[in-house]
Write a protein that binds this DNA or RNA. Structure first.
Lengths: 177, 177
DNA sequence: GGAAAGAACTTAACATGTTAATCATCTCCC
DNA sequence: GGGAGATGATTAACATGTTAAGTTCTTTCC
């Protein structure tokens, strides 16, 4: 159901050029693309506000996660804020430099670092939150609360469905370890 | 640096420290986060295969988009592959250097560039496609074809719902530009 | 017909994503 | 005890995301 449209789009020249090519799904039906587009549509709403407060999306995620706990280890924070270690390291360095967070070594393990939000950080959060919540409310209003919950549910199931799917290495690259 | 006695500011954390803070949605219920996690779960499946062929996700998106047309202008390609101009510029420079694509100036407008996939690019696509399709099939099998279609539908509606929502600038920052 | 405004990239600058390598510490086990 | 290996965190290197500024060419319009 995907291929036929191409002739319509490119009627005249090499009308069979595309037809000879590897058959694949239409681009718009790609799941990663759909998720990307949807996420971008949502984030586009939040970015200006965050930017006005000197925060990036990821910095906001971290501060927000820190607001929910008293303190947290870096590794756990990475898991909660869904950031990779290297990204988190850089951002924490920056946030600490801006005095929005505090960092100290864990008591019983010198390798671990424990992070917490500072008073200044809390203040920033409180300044951003109203706008952020208003935007979220508007999104909910437009899309529908029920539908939003349903979407959350479906996304969660998708994630769970793929959890055990060990990254299928390419056949030509030999077996796994 | 400028490290104050924050123990004074946030003294003595009890178990209810978090409860006193700004009320916000749980992190896991954040829509951007759900979309990000779902997308990452999907992309995690594809990345190893692409990597084995020397392609990043975005490079693959571009080549894939080029496969569907005979040639296309850069701006239109950016729209279709959902990439920003600067990213696309860099990637096209790289892909052209690897002879995976071809670029020429438009006939009637010297500003515009027209891009097309090369024979070498097509060959690469054909080498990656089988694995890629197999992964997609497995995802579909696990999640369910019907559910997948429904998810696509809901994501599309979400995107459309937010389309007209003019990026709500922060109230405290007047629109000056 | 030429200056000004607009359009299509491109470059620049900074922040993050991604993988690999490094560094320090810790655990286990001989 | 002490060394091999595991673990937590950071750094390195490269690619992309994001916004702003710059370049080149076109169109508009006086």
């Amino acid at each position: 159901m995907a291929r036929k449209k191409l002739d319509e789009i490119r009627p005249e020249q090499g009308d069979d050029a595309a037809a000879r090519r590897t058959p694949m799904r239409e681009f718009s039906r790609s799941l990663p693309m759909s998720l990307l587009r949807a996420r971008e549509a949502v984030m586009r709403q939040f970015r200006p506000s965050l930017r006005n407060h000197g925060l990036t999306e990821q910095q906001w995620r971290i501060l927000r996660a820190l607001t929910a706990v008293d303190e947290i280890e870096v590794t756990e924070l990475a898991r909660v804020a869904f950031l990779l270690g290297p990204s988190l390291s850089r951002i924490l360095r920056d946030l600490e430099g801006r005095a929005l967070i505090e960092r100290k070594a864990a008591e019983n393990d010198a390798r671990r670092a424990v992070v917490s939000i500072s008073a200044k950080g809390l203040k920033l959060i409180e300044a951003v939150a109203p706008t952020s919540e208003a935007i979220y409310a508007e999104i909910t209003r437009r899309y529908g609360a029920r539908k939003l919950a349903e979407l959350h549910e479906m996304l969660g199931v998708l994630e769970a469905s793929l959890a055990g799917m060990g990254s299928a290495e390419d056949a030509e690259v030999e077996a796994d370890e």
